[in-house]
């Protein structure tokens, strides 16, 4: 069988293209945030048009980052950086990144954590998981969000809760399947959940492994996303 052409290695192209797209999107986000900051009145028509645009662009950006990270972890070239982080600084970072968008969308955010707590995790990966969950909740909530973090027997737990309709049963099942390590067929949220679950599992300590849970109910009765890090 000499005449079979070898299939090109598409993954390398995909990875470099994603990298390139991610850089363009970053420029776009910086530009849009600058523009939004220049709009003086909070109630202008421009703002109302711009906010959903920013949401969509951020979603694309976070998807690209997740794809790239999954690719790198798969090739074991991701520099997993397990260091002690200040929860206070970490949360402040997260809040400052999501602040713009939540303000424009008119969503109220409540936050609760112990600023003096220190915990071991990879700053970029966990920040990716939390931002993604916040963005997701912001999309489905009515008008309220709650981000909290506290220490439990399982380790450090992050909760992201909203007052939306909650997760549909299909998503709850998918989430369950990922946790079981079962092969799953994706809905639209497959990537984010896969990424979050992968990040959780990369965090190990003393025989314990990190995990995620999706449920309905929680503080505001909507969706509740939980990330546990041992």
């Amino acid at each position: 069988m000499d005449n079979i052409e070898q299939a090109p290695d598409i993954t390398a192209f995909l990875a470099s293209s994603i990298h390139d797209m991610k850089n363009s999107i970053s420029v776009l986000i910086n530009f849009m945030e600058d523009q939004l900051a220049d709009i003086e009145t909070q109630d202008s028509p421009a703002l109302r048009k711009m906010a959903p645009m920013l949401y969509e662009v951020k979603r694309v950006n976070s998807n690209l980052i997740q794809l790239l990270t999954i690719y790198k972890v798969g090739n074991t070239v991701y520099p997993f950086d397990l260091t002690e982080n200040s929860l206070g600084e970490f949360m402040e970072d997260i809040l400052s990144q999501s602040k713009h968008l939540l303000d424009y969308q008119g969503i109220q955010m409540e936050c609760e954590f112990d600023p003096d707590l220190y915990w071991y995790f990879d700053r970029e990966l966990v920040s990716g998981v939390i931002s993604h969950a916040l963005n997701n909740s912001a999309h489905y909530t009515q008008n309220k969000l709650r981000l909290s973090a506290h220490q439990t027997d399982a380790g450090l737990e992050f909760h992201i809760e909203d007052n939306g309709q909650g997760y549909p049963p299909s998503v709850l099942e998918t989430g369950h399947a990922i946790e079981q390590g079962v092969n799953f067929s994706t809905g639209s949220t497959g990537l984010g959940l896969y990424f979050s679950s992968m990040v959780a599992k990369m965090h190990k300590n003393q025989g314990k492994t990190g995990s995620i849970t999706l449920k309905n109910g929680g503080a505001y009765g909507g969706g509740c996303f939980i990330l546990r890090l041992p």
């Binding site: 970053s26 986000i29 910086n30 070239v77 520099p79 950086d81 402040e92 970072d93 400052s96």
Partner: peptide
Amino acid sequence: KTSEMVLGAAEYTPDDYIIKPINETT
């Protein structure tokens, strides 16, 4: 982030790194 930057020889790693896009508060 690259391996050298994050997990390289301690005497040559930076004190911190910031991933772009950069954000004022961060």
